[in-house]
Nucleic acid binder design. Structure first.
Lengths: 241, 241
DNA sequence: CCCAAAAATGAGCTTGATTCATTTATAATG
DNA sequence: CATTATAAATGAATCAAGCTCATTTTTGGG
């Protein structure tokens, strides 16, 4: 009976954990509609029909609880991202799907994510958290698409993957932020669209050459070089002061 | 004497305010070296050689104090951004300068910025804060460069300015975040470089075409030269220390 | 030197997270 | 079915940090 009983125990514990996590996410979503006021443990306990102290039997402290809730979120997100990318299509479309998914989901749980993450934002010890690992697993989906795109020749091969990743998720997160400020979902979607254009054009491997326009122009090249050198000189002057 | 005396009073008050703000920024920078533990008012008061209560005579509450410190930071940053952009050079160079400046400064005061901002991140009422106004004034510098770039024909005109702005600052902030995780300034600079390439190519009008595989590509050549020069500069910087 | 106004202080209040002694529920055993 | 050991839950008490305000100290004009 040992084994069976212990399994039942574990299931019960996990069930209650899920209850508390669901309550947490719910309270954050609710609170979002009103002012972005910070969420109390008391509120989460109430939502889950538990006494305040009970929450601490399942999670070490508030921070751990929020992190677990975020982990939950990332789990879902990663699953869905994998599914989105599994269907056969070109690199650009895959990236667009990932962008769409990321933008929407992050927008939905923005308060939870920002509150859970903010203690780590300033700290290099974020690397040690479970959330870091989960985030890593999540962006791995993106990385695979990018690596595949490079192999296919869709994406230029002279950029570091982390830089591409930063450009992608950084831009999207700013779009989400800006969307929250405006409160206009439609504008936001247009913004994401424009962002995707910038990003995509930026990473794509050069389109097949066209001779005319861009062909080498000696005079122009010299001028451009002069400008570059001028810029460097000014930089140095400023540094010298 | 009324007027003269009141001016002196104001000066004294402003001086003390500056003291407290400087202490605040200092404590955040110090705390950064250790774990990113959160800063207490007590610590700021100690740094400024004041009793805790005194701080509250000059700032309504902690949040207001942090915001004032951030405002201080933005003031400096805006001034320097304006100066950087004032010198005559092409759009790409201006953007690179702005990127460089933003990246470095934000990296330096990251903990302060994130802690001061985090209460507003989830909230649309950020629009009402003074920091929002200051941030607006700051990005205005960027917006001008972009608008000018569009007018000159350097930047494509089919993208919304906010989207361009999001792409720029979003990408940079992720670079900064990633730089804090790695703790390797040099990697980070390379990442910013790559990011800038993506961004620049993405927004530029007609990315310079190249004629056939092996043909000489002016833009690529310039970029390569820039990288070489950048490398030399870094070498010099390192030698200088 | 004296005093009123200004500035500063720090003990105590408040709020919200966290702990833990106690109570309540569960379920195995005689 | 009563007994009792164990698990689960409770909420009153503790703690920490932001914040207030009655009191003390400093300042500057007469």
């Amino acid at each position: 009976m040992q084994a069976v009983e212990s399994k039942t125990r574990r299931q019960k514990v996990e069930e209650k954990e899920r209850t508390i996590l669901a309550a947490t996410r719910q309270v954050f979503r609710d609170g979002d509609k009103e002012g972005g006021k910070d969420v109390k443990i008391a509120a989460i306990a109430r939502e889950a029909n538990l006494a305040e102290g009970t929450v601490y039997l399942y999670f070490k402290n508030k921070q751990a609880l929020l992190m677990a809730a975020v982990s939950d979120f990332y789990d879902e997100l990663t699953r869905d991202a994998q599914a989105a990318v599994a269907v056969q299509c070109d690199t650009g479309t895959k990236l667009a799907k990932l962008a769409q998914l990321h933008f929407e989901r992050v927008l939905d749980e923005w308060p939870l994510i920002t509150e859970a993450m903010s203690p780590y934002l300033p700290s290099p010890q974020y690397r040690e958290t479970e959330a870091f690992a989960l985030n890593r697993r999540y962006v791995e989906v993106f990385d695979l698409v990018v690596r595949d795109g490079i192999k296919r020749g869709d994406i230029r091969n002279d950029l570091s993957i982390p830089a591409i990743r930063n450009a992608f998720y950084g831009g999207l997160e700013h779009c989400a932020r800006s969307a929250r400020l405006r409160l206009m979902r439609l504008d936001a979607i247009a913004e994401v669209d424009d962002f995707l254009t910038i990003f995509t054009v930026g990473i794509m491997d050069r389109p097949p050459a066209c001779a005319g326009e861009g062909a080498l122009d000696g005079a122009a090249l010299v001028q451009q070089l002069e400008r570059v050198i001028e810029g460097v000189k000014q930089q140095m002057d400023r540094d010298a002061t």
